[in-house]
């Protein structure tokens, strides 16, 4: 049994259907990347898993438990944490306070303030700075660190590299192995295809709300991925 099983999920924003039957499975300690063009439904998928957007069809099971009637804050308590698009750091709280709020659900595990300092030394230097005054890179690290403070079994990361300098992106990705070494599975949404393939064990390619290609990241053929990414399978 996988940690998370997504079966034929559909979702919509009002009249606009965004996901058309998505399925995937994630095992503990695994990094699963979801890639695709803008509007392919990557972020929508994460929202559905995190519980901020309801699925209109299909099922989600986590640790064998049906997630359908669990609201977002209860899913955090169950072990799913989302690093949202735009980071959503509490701007009036300091770095330390943001991290402490992250542990609000009181889940036990490896991650605490000390281990976060080791994971992201840069955050340790900014400890008393309020979120409002943090840079983009600091915010991204803080967002991941805040999610880790809940000691999730599954970490969802939405567009980790968006708008960041390459040096910072490298630092963020370098931290992934430390996270998965604790048994945490990571579901990564990423626009940068190379980055995603390098960091993950499995990859799903989304196009117009459907999974068009899926497999082990090392085994997938680059050209095949490109065609799937842009939806050109017919012309190949």
């Amino acid at each position: 049994m996988s940690l998370l099983e997504v079966n034929n999920i559909e979702a919509r924003y009002g009249d606009l259907k965004a996901l058309f039957g998505i399925s995937l499975a994630i095992n503990p300690g695994e990094v699963h990347s979801v890639i695709g063009a803008n509007g392919a439904g990557k972020s929508t998928l994460l929202k559905v898993i995190a519980g901020t957007l309801p699925a209109t069809a299909g099922s989600l099971t986590f640790h064998g438990q049906d997630l359908a009637h669990l609201s977002a804050y209860k899913r955090v308590r169950a072990g799913i944490s989302l690093v949202p698009e735009g980071r959503r750091i509490f701007s009036s709280l300091t770095v330390e306070e943001n991290l402490k709020v992250g542990s609000y659900s009181r889940r036990k595990g490896h991650w605490n303030l000390n281990n976060i300092r080791d994971l992201y030394p840069l955050l340790a230097e900014r400890w008393d700075r309020i979120g409002f005054h943090c840079s983009g890179g600091e915010l991204q690290m803080l967002a991941i660190a805040r999610a880790l403070m809940a000691n999730p079994d599954l970490l969802l990361i939405d567009e980790a590299s968006l708008g960041l300098a390459p040096v910072v992106v490298a630092q963020v990705y370098a931290s992934l192995p430390h996270i998965t070494s604790q048994g945490t599975a990571v579901l990564l949404v990423e626009q940068d295809m190379q980055q995603a393939l390098r960091a993950s064990t499995h990859t799903s390619v989304l196009l117009e709300g459907k999974v068009v290609l899926e497999g082990s990241s090392s085994a997938l053929n680059k050209d095949e991925i490109k065609r799937a990414y842009f939806g050109m399978e017919g012309r190949a």
Partner: peptide
């Protein structure tokens, strides 16, 4: 306090508070 911080977090951004396990 834990709840006090949650109050401030919720005041800043209720959506993000939801994502760290706070029942707004």
């Amino acid at each position: 306090s834990r709840v006090g911080r949650a109050l401030r977090a919720s005041s800043d951004d209720p959506g993000a508070a939801d994502l760290v396990g706070i029942n707004n």
